[in-house]
């Protein structure tokens, strides 16, 4: 049960000639909820996009011992990597149900039906709105749908990019509550967040990313007490400009 689900070694990612992630390594065990926090522009989104295969990168990525590095995105998805992207990337002109069904595109038809029932059980709100177009949902519902769509693939690892972004505080609480439920259900989760407090409260382990590098890691309570984290967010900093 506690095998390594994800292993990233020395990942470098560049946009054209400009490198934005400089040799990031991280590791997470099966069933854990790991968070990567950091200020805007730290390279968190880039990191996730490279892990899932949206961006070319050098270095290695292993999912449950399987090498992902040379594989294209769709093959990584089939292997069990799922990303809930920062911009949700829903199919806005299609129904909620179709969005979910397409999330299970890679699964056999029979499993897809079961998964759909599971998702509707977990997100009753989506069940109510199953016939509605995804583009007409509220921000919180969109986030739920994006998560539901990713879960339809029954991923080995669920990665979420800033699920709290643009959501009102009450909705953020709902989203994070669902993450804890998923974790309890045994889903391995890699959570990238700018909302550091919320992320640290539910994570098993945390990485802090700054300017494309991992600058700190440890148990969430240790990180939360780390004065440096507060500084890098609010600029009480040691850097005199």
């Amino acid at each position: 049960m506690s095998g390594t689900i994800l292993k990233v070694r020395d990942l470098h990612v560049a946009y054209g000639r400009v490198e934005v992630v400089h040799g990031v390594s991280l590791e997470m065990t099966q069933g854990a909820l790991i968070t990567v926090i950091g200020a805007n522009g730290a390279g968190k989104t880039t990191l996730l996009n490279a892990i899932v295969g949206l961006l070319p990168a050098s270095g290695t990525v292993e999912l449950a011992g399987e090498a992902m590095t040379a594989r294209p995105l769709e093959s990584r998805v089939r292997a069990g990597l799922s990303l809930v992207p920062e911009r949700r990337e829903l199919f806005a002109d299609m129904s909620v149900e179709d969005n979910l069904l397409l999330g299970g595109f890679r699964r056999p038809a029979r499993e897809r039906g079961e998964s759909l029932d599971d998702i509707f059980a977990r997100f009753p709100r989506l069940h109510e709105r199953r016939a509605q177009l995804a583009g007409t949902l509220s921000g919180g519902e969109r986030q739920m749908l994006a998560m539901g769509r990713a879960l339809m693939a029954r991923p080995k690892l669920l990665m979420l990019d800033e699920p709290s972004l643009g959501l009102a505080p009450l909705i953020v609480r709902d989203v994070f509550h669902i993450l804890t439920e998923l974790r309890a259900a045994g889903v391995s989760i890699l959570l990238v967040e700018q909302n550091a407090r919320a992320a640290l409260q539910i994570a098993d382990y945390a990485y802090v990313m700054e300017l494309g590098e991992i600058t700190a890691q440890g148990r969430p309570d240790e990180i939360a007490r780390d004065q440096r984290l507060i500084e890098s967010y609010l600029g009480f900093g040691r850097n005199e400009y």
């Binding site: 709290s164 505080p169 953020v172 609480r173 994070f176 509550h177 967040e193 700018q194 909302n195 550091a196 407090r197 919320a198 992320a199 409260q201 539910i202 507060i230 967010y233 609010l234």
Partner: peptide, 11 residues
């Protein structure tokens, strides 16, 4: 208010 906006509300 600024601290909450930056570090996030308590979940």
């Amino acid at each position: 208010k600024v601290i909450e906006a930056y570090l996030g509300g308590v979940a």
